[in-house]
Amino acid sequence: MSTKSLSAEYLKGLWDENPVFRQLLGMCPVLAVTNAVINGIAMGLAASFVLILSSVVVASIKKLIPTQVRIASYIVVIATFVTVADRFMAAYFPPISKALGPYIPLIVVNCIILGRQEAFSSRNSVGRSFIDALGMSTGFVLALLVLSSIREILGAGTFLGMQVMGSWFKPWIIMILPAGAFITLGILLGIALLVEQKTRERRAS
């Protein structure tokens, strides 16, 4: 139904419709797990896994689902993949699973995932939904990576556990605290809007 090329379908998730910076979806995990880069990456990959597989499944069974119960059906599909991701993390990466705590099961209520099923996969072909989910996931992982890098570098002076700041650097404890998450994301949102405005002005002139 959509006439966009496949590459445009992928790229829109990176910036134009970036789930975090442009659509303000899925904020809870974004704020909660970005105190260290490794947690951000693990969260991003887990959410991507769930989003991509649910999109493919929903797109392939969309004709079988009656409209009245579609939301409930999507939730069951999503919850199944979240359970898989949760068990997998607990079995193979116990320390990360412990650090992320309830936030992996909480992917089930992440609005990005349900939002994509409702807005995209339920109306588009399997291939297109896969590409769309891939793009959205990349955008989500990128956002988590940016936020967690800023917070870990400023808050602990490290990146992925490696020391990157010199010994002169005094870590800003606030960046690791919840307050740092809110303030950093707020400023990043402002920057994203500013960039968007500037590009629009340039395109117009």
Partner: peptide
């Protein structure tokens, strides 16, 4: 949203 997040912080 931007200022709301900073206030929340």
């Amino acid at each position: 949203a931007g200022i709301a997040l900073i206030v929340a912080g």
